[in-house]
Every structure is written in structure tokens, then in C-alpha cells.
Write a protein that binds this DNA or RNA. Structure first.
Lengths: 389, 389
DNA sequence: CGCAATACGCTTTGATCTTTACAAAATCGT
DNA sequence: ACGATTTTGTAAAGATCAAAGCGTATTGCG
């Protein structure tokens, strides 16, 4: 059911609605003429004209005076959404690295800053690196913190409504960190903290292999397994933010699954525990019997949890992402085979192509969604950075 | 994000929007004065006045001339949504019975017809009984088939997009039945076929114990276990209609769970297999050791599947429904205990109170939703029964 | 150079909501 | 009983907005 305004609509609101309609028609399109916009929205040409001029004077759009025209007739002015009117940030506070992306309102990435951090770093140190990265990202793009319209931070572990990771997190001492409050000292715009798996799922729907799907189960496969769920085109957090945490169920052996790789016989002592999985995948690719067995046992355990998610949600697509997605060539076919055996209706199984940046990319997308929500609910006055509350 | 009309809005559409706004303000409220509606919608009193009169002349509302007034000032005319403008049907095509409910647009049940049918009945026989029940229901309420605006039929087994139950159904020979087509010969209005667990979940959200929740896992517990999922206030079917079918996963012992009750030692030979569970529950209530053990084993197995659903979705409420919900006094506490052990965030666990009629009630609600969707998307002309396509 | 095609900008018209004003109908106070 | 008060119903005026129509500007083609 289309959600209609429950409140009555008067004329100014009508104008606002139509302005938003024009903004929508402007976005994700090349610079458009008034006639094109008129056809796209169903509004009359004069109406589009005055609205477009209003958008230009408000700063939401820019006008391109006609240059060399290829068509017959008088060359038309073209209007363009001013994506540079605002910027948003998505930052992945990972175990080994912190990666910040800064983009305009169209999602074009303007600046990227990445910095390594020790997995054992205390919260204070990690937060200090985060601050450095954010400062560098904002400064490097020639902006100031006041120009940022939304910030989303990705962390591991289930994030509750208040932005805390109280249930579980592998980051040492992180349970007591109030990341949203910390970021709030630096930015006055809305701040969102979200789980990394969920954000990676969002990225796959936005720019990844699941663009065509509205029901998606995203598997973040690495030394830890996680999942992100998109249902009916919307990222679902669950009532307490703990949706997708099927790994907590012992009957589903997600916690043990990566151990098959880590404890695979034949891994040389010179290989560090963090790189063991990569070694095993390579060995399996070379035909090593023991490595192949370990991969198979890994996939068998992974598939049980995936099957639980698939049977619960009946998604269109399952995306195999995370660090192990580089070895999708070894995993995908046996995973499909296992799922076929365990599931009622077989979903499409695809390997992620976004790589390790997908988490930050998803954070960026959530920031953009946050801006859109405010835009399309609060109406559009002049383009300025929104303030929290 | 609130879904706004992507197309431009002109003046007639504005009037339509406001008319819908008034209809919304009228529904689920006692007969209202123009002033009340004005406050509820934010529209001015004269605007509400003309719209309300338009609704009356269209047949969407009735006017109550002022009677004995209790307040000071001139007594106001009162407007009321004409729930009797249309009627919908929800019918449960169960294994043992067929139950049809006919209600007006407010969901007030006008007529009920129930008829038993053998569990082994062939499709032709079952469809004949269904036809009889529907005829009796329509005729008994003084209506004709043309007065019905939507029909929803509940069946067991996953229902795909075309209304078939191709994956699985316990009804003999039912896989090849096209129920929607069968009903289409009798009704020209929209027809929906849906899984019984999902509809029971909808009923619990509508009129049951989960009215306050937007994220619900409904367990249909009986000799067969099923589940229905409501996420963000909306019933979710999954891409292929097979959402909630966690019972298909062997690691989750849902298929075997009821066997603990059926095979409980001590059940007299005089008790039929269908009544064995009830006997065990009663014996457990009386303190029978073996029966208590069987119930505990049953709950332990049930809880694993429930935990898989809860961990996947992180719902606010888990509703224990279905035939066994009569014995909720024995199940609820151990179920809570097991879930506490298995889950990350403990949801609220509640027993259904709607009983065996919840499936038909949910079907009724889905019919009402179907009508609402058409109403609020297609706009409201005169109230007439919609036609398919 | 003239004609056709297209886009632009202005004016008029019609529809809708809001504001304001005033009459009608009931209760309350004296 | 009668006027004051309060609330409702209704009408008129003002404001806003989109649609329709029409003249003008600019380009391409013959």
C-alpha cells in the first residue's frame, strides 16, 4: 500500500510535493530539459518551469545554458540536480582498518581515507584513529564538518536502538563505547551507527551484484560469519537491531565453520593464523586433498546457517561476501549444492564483487538514505546541513 | 522513507488526496463532526465540509442528523464511514473444516459459515464443500457474489506468486489445484490465496495478542509446525512465498517435535492418534511423569526452530498459536526458558487467544488490506466492487 | 532566404483551500 | 422568559497553484 499523508494537503504543500517530484525526476538522470521533466512527472510544462526555477534559486539545481545542440528546434535549457549541495560520510570502523568515504548527494565519492589500526587497540586508541581519519577525509575534500549532512559508522556486533553494541563485539572494550555520542561532538548532523554485515548488504543492493533484487540474504564470510537482511527492498534491523545473528545458534555451526580452514592439516607454521584460510583456499585451488576437504567441511557448516536464513526469509538472492568472497570460485558451487539439498525454493547464489570496501560503501548509502528521508518527509527548503533532533 | 507519489499532483488529485485523508480520519472513529475532522486532518472546516458532503453523495459516508446534544452550542451533524458500502470474505480451507467469514469494510463480521470436511477428501470434494460454504455465506448475509469486494482463501503449504501450493501441502492431490482460478468463476473481485500460518500471524497483529508489535514471529503449533512472519508491520511472504518454512531444515527438528507427544508412553489405545497430544497435555497437567517428559522434549525441539526464526529476525513478540495453544500453560514457561538459553535478545513470548478461527480471521484481514490498497492507490470514485485486473 | 520544428515566456482560466464573516441553533445565566 | 454565549452551517472573498493557449525566439533544412 502506498503510504499517503494522513494529514490534509493544502496548496503550499502541493507545491512542495511537486517540487519533490521534480527533484526525483532530476536525480539519477542526465541534465534534463523542462519538456523531459514534464513528460517524466506528468506535470505541465509551465508548472515544471516555475518549479525548476525555484529549485535553482533555492540551490537544489543548476541550469546549463544551451550549448551545441544536435536536435532541430530551439535548444533547450537543461536542469541538473546539484549533487554538490551537500555531502555525507560513511565510515567503516573495522578490526584491522578504518575506512572513511565522503560523497556528494548523488553518491559520487569525493574523497577516501584509509588507515590501519591494530586489532588489539584499546577503544581510546581506535577512536583517536577514527577522529584522524574523519578529519583527514573532511579536510582533504575541502569541506568542513558543518558541510556534512549525515554520518554513518559501521561496527561489528549487533547495534541496538541507542547505537551501542551491548550484545557482542570482537573489539576489545568496545561494549561501553557510545560511538554516536563520540561522533556527535564533531558533527552536528544526524549520526547513525550500524552493524557492518547489514551495511555490506545495503551496498550490494545499491551498487553490487544484488541491484535487481528486493529480498536479499547477504553472508559476510570471513574468520567470523555474519549476515545482513534486505526484505522488500529495505534493510531490516529487527526490533533490537540483532536481526541476522543466526550464528548464535549452536545447532547452526557458524562459529566453528572457519575453524575447519584454520585447523586444516598441512598449513605451514610460517603462515600466521590470520592468513591460514587464504593458504588453504590456495592449496585447494592447487588440488591439495586435505585443503579441499577442509573447504568442503567449511562450506557444509556455512550452508546450514545460510539455509536457516533462506528457509526463514525465502530471498531472491543470496550474496556471498566478506573476506572469503575472493575464494568464491571454490565456495559457490558446493554452497549451491548444499543449499539445493537443504532448502525448499532455491535462491540465486552470487559472489560479491565489491570486496572489502562494501561495508564503508553501505555506510555511505545509509547516510544518503538518512538525507533522503529527511528531504522527502520534512520537505525541501534551502539545502543546508540538517541538525540532529 | 515515506513513499511519496513519484508523479506530479494536480488540483483534482489534491482533492482526491484530501478525500482519502477524510476517509482515513473517519475510519476507526465514532461518528465525527466536521470540526473534529478538521482538527484530525489539519484541513479547514469549510474544506472538510464540502469533502464530507461529497463523500456522502458518493456513498462513502452517511450523515447522522443531530439528536439529543449534551454539549453547549449548536449541535453538529455527524459523519460516519459507511462500512456497509462493501463486504469482503475470508475463508479457511483447512484439513478438517472449511470456515468462511463475511465482514463489512470495518471488519465487522456479518455472517459465519463452518462445515466439516474429511481430511482424506479428494480436491473435487473439498472444492464442492468450499463452494457450498461460500454460497451459504453470501446468501446468508443477504448479499450476492457481485457485492463482494475481495476474497482471501487460506490453505496449508507454501503458496507461490500464482496462488499454487506447488512445494508442499498435506491435502491429498492439492498440488495441481488452482484455487484462485476456481474461485474466479464465482467472484469477479480480486482473489488472494495465502498460507494459513501467515494469515494467522496477520490475525494476531490485527485483533490478537500482538496488536502493539510491528515485528512478530507467529508459531502455528499443532501436529504440523509452521510460522508466519510480520516485519515492520507488514506480512512477509518471501520472494517465492516460502518465508517461515524453517521446519524444512533437518537440523531444526520441527518435523519430529510433535512425535514426542504422539509416541509418549502411557497413551491408552482408546485415544485416536489425532487426540494423543491433547491426552498427553492433560496427563502432564495432572502430574504424569512420562507425559511431562514428552512435553519437555517437544518444547526443546520446538524451541530450536523458534530460536532460528528469532535469531534471524529479532522480533519484538513471539506468538504461540495453533491447536496446541490451548495448552500454552504447559508450554510457555519452558519455551521461554529454552529461548532465553538460545537467543541473543529475548523477545516477548505470548500465547494466542484467538483460537482456531485465527486463520479465517487473518484471511479476512488480508481481504480488507487488498481493498484498502486499491482504495488508497487507485483513488476513490463511487463505492463499487472492484474487478480483477 | 523562407519554412518547419521546437522551446521559451507570458496571460488567461479553472480548481482548490483558507480566511473572514454572518446567520442558525442550541445551552447557560439571570 | 429572554438575552448572552457558544458552536455549527454556509456563503463570499482572497490566495495559490496548475493547465491551456498563444505569441516569440532560435535552430535546422531545403
Amino acid at each position: 500500500m502506498t503510504e499517503l499523508a494522513t494529514t490534509g494537503t493544502d496548496l503550499p504543500r502541493l507545491r512542495e510535493l511537486n517540487s519533490l517530484s521534480i527533484v526525483r525526476a532530476l536525480r539519477d538522470h542526465p541534465p534534463s530539459t523542462v519538456t523531459e521533466l514534464s513528460q517524466r512527472t506528468g506535470l505541465s510544462r509551465p508548472a515544471v518551469d516555475v518549479i525548476a526555477q525555484g529549485l535553482v534559486s533555492d540551490g537544489w539545481a543548476t541550469v546549463l545554458e544551451p550549448g551545441a545542440s544536435s536536435a532541430v528546434g530551439r535548444p533547450a535549457r537543461r536542469y541538473q540536480f546539484r549533487a554538490g549541495a551537500g555531502h555525507v560520510i560513511g565510515v567503516d570502523v573495522g578490526v584491522h582498518k578504518i575506512l572513511a568515504l565522503l560523497a556528494d548527494l548523488d553518491g559520487n565519492i569525493v574523497h577516501t581515507v584509509r588507515q590501519a589500526v591494530s586489532a588489539e587497540a584499546e577503544p581510546a586508541e581506535r577512536l583517536a584513529v577514527l577522529d584522524d581519519v574523519l578529519d583527514a577525509c573532511v579536510a582533504g575534500s575541502g569541506k568542513s564538518a558543518a558541510d556534512i549532512w549525515a554520518v554513518t559508522a559501521a561496527v561489528t556486533g549487533a547495534v541496538d536502538a541507542s547505537g551501542r553494541t551491548s550484545f557482542f563485539t570482537p573489539l576489545p572494550g568496545w561494549k561501553s563505547v557510545d560511538l554516536a555520542a563520540h561522533l556527535g561532538h564533531r558533527f552536528s548532523c544526524p549520526i547513525v551507527v550500524e552493524n557492518d554485515c547489514k551495511l555490506a548488504a545495503l551496498a550490494e543492493k545499491w551498487q553490487g551484484v544484488a541491484r535487481d533484487a528486493d529480498d536479499i540474504v547477504y553472508l559476510l564470510a570471513g574468520m567470523r560469519n555474519g549476515a545482513g537482511l534486505i526484505i522488500d527492498g529495505v534493510l531490516r534491523r529487527g526490533f533490537g537491531g540483532a536481526a541476522g545473528e543466526i550464528g548464535a545458534l549452536k545447532h547452526v555451526r557458524w562459529l566453528n565453520a572457519p575453524e575447519h580452514l584454520q585447523n586444516c592439516p598441512g598449513v605451514p607454521d610460517t603462515v600466521s593464523p590470520d592468513d591460514a584460510a587464504a593458504w588453504v583456499f590456495n592449496a585447494a585451488r592447487d588440488g591439495d586433498k586435505a585443503a579441499r576437504g577442509a573447504v568442503n567441511r567449511y562450506v557444509k557448516d556455512l550452508a546450514v546457517g545460510a539455509a536457516a536464513l533462506v528457509l526463514t526469509l525465502d530471498p531472491q538472492v543470496v550474496v556471498f561476501g566478506g573476506g572469503f568472497s575472493r575464494s568464491a570460485d571454490l565456495v559457490l558451487d558446493p554452497l549451491r549444492h548444499e543449499l539445493q539439498r537443504l532448502c525448499l525454493r532455491m535462491p540465486d547464489v552470487r559472489a560479491s564483487t565489491l570486496g572489502a570496501d562494501s561495508v564503508a560503501l553501505g555506510a555511505l548509502k545509509l547516510s544518503l538514505n538518512e538525507v533522503d528521508t529527511r528531504l522527502f518527509s520534512a520537505g525541501l527548503s534551502a539545502p543546508v546541513a540538517p541538525r540532529r533532533q
